[in-house]
């Protein structure tokens, strides 16, 4: 058992570390199936890839998400998010838990997003996400800090959206270690309702630039098929979504070259 914990902790720190801090495991199963490329993707309630995306939601959303990195129960993640569009903007509240009894990460987040028109007939969506990030390791204690994400999303053409997301401008630390500071810029191209492409350039200040991309097709009204690919680390993703009335269910799987498969599932209700 000790060996297994040491192995998992090593994995967390060395390999999964950069992946964990990134969006593919945090931003819902739809994003996971699209290679994690969701910086410019509208209608995403999660806010990890871009909190401005919440401003494009026109309905209340309650969403649940679970994933298990590389099939290891120690790397299990569960999350829930409520998004409420109002006349004053879109508000979000969520929680997330990750890890196991010897290592537990908890997020509690508050989000706000709104579209501004600046004298035009179009909207520039802005979003902010504030989350309390707490880590507890039973033998060592616990520590927490506040993380910040700022995002923008805009349609530069009717078929093309541009999004950007900057995290942790205030350089937060946890246990003496700096938390990830990232900048992501993405494009979302949707020439027709049944086909869309997303591409992200994602840079964590401590790790090499990653390029992420995904394609989503909608062969029939209720069904979405998704594939994606990403670099740093190199991985392939695929997924399926089903939307029936107010209910949406998504499943996704990610294939890491070395570490293998990570399944993910999400469920949301919109009304």
């Amino acid at each position: 058992m000790t060996h297994r914990i040491v192995f998992v902790l090593s994995l967390l720190l060395v390999l999964a570390g950069p992946a964990r801090g990134q969006t593919s495991m945090e931003n819902g199963a739809r994003t996971a199936a699209l290679g994690g490329a969701a910086t410019a993707l509208p209608d995403v309630p999660w806010g990890y890839a871009n909190p401005a995306s919440r401003s494009t939601l026109s309905e209340r959303v309650v969403a649940f998400f679970a994933t298990q990195a590389f099939g290891l129960s120690e790397l299990r993640l569960g999350a829930a998010q409520v998004v409420e569009p109002t006349g004053l903007g879109t508000f979000a509240l969520g929680a997330r838990t990750f890890g196991f009894e010897d290592y537990r990460e908890t997020h509690l987040n508050l989000g706000y997003a709104r579209g501004v028109q600046l004298g035009t007939s179009r909207r520039f969506h802005l979003g902010v996400n504030v989350r309390y990030h707490r880590v507890s390791v039973p033998d060592y204690g616990a520590a927490g800090t506040v993380e910040l994400g700022l995002g923008g999303l805009v349609s530069v053409l009717p078929v093309l959206d541009l999004g950007f997301h900057w995290t942790n401008p205030h350089v937060p630390t946890l246990g003496g270690e700096e938390l990830p500071r990232t900048l992501a810029v993405g494009l979302h191209y949707a020439p027709m309702d049944l086909f869309r492409v997303v591409v992200d350039a994602y840079k964590d200040v401590r790790f090499p630039l990653a390029i992420r991309s995904g394609i989503e097709v909608r062969p029939v009204d209720v069904l979405f098929l998704r594939v994606g690919a990403a670099t740093e680390p190199s991985r392939w993703t695929a997924g399926v979504g089903v939307a029936v009335g107010a209910f949406v269910a998504d499943v996704a799987a990610e294939r890491h070259e070395v570490l293998g498969w990570s399944p993910a599932v999400a469920f949301s209700v919109r009304w």
Partner: peptide, 20 residues
């Protein structure tokens, strides 16, 4: 990327966006 972007933007002309 540029090839993809260029091709994408050529596919369909934009309509309805007001040149403010």
């Amino acid at each position: 990327l540029p090839l993809v972007l260029g091709a994408l933007l050529l596919v369909r002309p934009a309509a309805g966006q007001v040149p403010d």
